[in-house]
Computed example of a mutant assay.
Amino acid sequence: MDVLSDVLITLRTGRPSAARSSSQAPWGVRFQRGPAAGCHVVLEGGCWLLSDHGEPRRLSPGDVLFTPHGDGHALADHPDSPLVDFEPEPHDAAPLDEMRIDGAGPVTELLCAYYWFDAARPHPLLTELPAMVHVPARVGQHPSLRAAVELLGQEVADPRPGTEAAVPALIDMLLLYVLRAWLDDQPEGQSGWATALRDPAITAALRQIHRHPEKPWTVEDLAAVAGLSRAAFAKRFTAIIGQPPLTYLTWWRMTTAARLLRESDDPLRTVAARSGYASEYAFGKAFKRAYDTAPGSYRAAQKSSA
């Protein structure tokens, strides 16, 4: 599995959902700050983005807006239009919802998708994203993202047998292509995950960490995978990723362990082994240091809140 896919699968919790809204001016919807990351697509008409992160911004048909950190914001037909509140529910059984605001003016059709990530262990790839990721619709740019938007829009506009299975998969696809678009638009030669995923040596090491967190990796081992000397690899990895190789390895092991505790009923000794720990005792100490709770207590709390 590639690193970007692994990050999204491991960190996402709950079931993604989407809502289609059809609003006639004057209208406005306020999205309060919360745990959900949002992705808005303008299907028809246009609207204004209102947030504390800059002046009002016009969104046109085909534009995509991603709010990775759940920052509060609003969408409206005009910056002065009245706002109503909307807050998605993380455990809503339905993957698809609808909202309609009637009025006398032009219609705006929006598609809004929502994702829940593990807030206790946000991945640095996500934390370095800006509060508002705007991907404008440009002819010939990001064709995969445009295709995902079209497919999801069709399913939402005309639900058919199988739509409840298709929508969550398409929402995941939408998120992946939004992140790809943002990563592709970042300038080269900087630190951060946009650079890391373009660097063959760093990507090779990351792929092995993600694929085999259970292995007793050393810096020398990872340097050999990257095709670099130990010193050159450690310096390059730290400069780009922002932390040393073994620090990131430990972080990923704990993130992997948390996912296994949430999603499986494997015995703790099995979770420990799959996370790179030879003993349940050593694993328990490391997990409590990372999450401030024992693995068994963490699992019980996650199961009870699901």
Rank of each mutant, 00 (worst) to 15 (best):
L4C: 11
L4N: 03
I9P: 01
Q24A: 15
V29H: 01
P35I: 08
V42D: 01
G45S: 08
W48K: 00
W48I: 07
S51I: 04
D52F: 03
G54Y: 00
D63P: 02
V64D: 01
L65M: 14
H69N: 14
D71E: 10
D77L: 03
H78G: 05
P79V: 07
P79K: 04
S81V: 14
E87N: 03
D92F: 05
P95S: 03
P95W: 00
L96R: 15
G103V: 06
A104I: 08
L111V: 08
E128D: 14
R138I: 03
H142C: 08
P143T: 00
P159A: 05
A166H: 05
A181G: 06
A181F: 11
W182E: 13
G189A: 03
G192P: 01
T195I: 02
A196R: 03
R198T: 02
I202E: 05
L206A: 04
L206I: 00
H210N: 09
H212R: 15
K215A: 14
P216E: 14
P216T: 05
P216G: 11
D221N: 15
V225D: 05
V225T: 12
A231T: 15
R236N: 12
F237R: 04
A239Q: 12
G242I: 00
P245D: 13
Y248P: 06
T250I: 06
R259I: 03
R259D: 13
S264Y: 10
L268S: 12
R269K: 12
A272P: 04
A272Q: 11
Y277P: 02
G284K: 02
K288H: 13
R289T: 13
R289E: 15
D292N: 13
A306V: 06
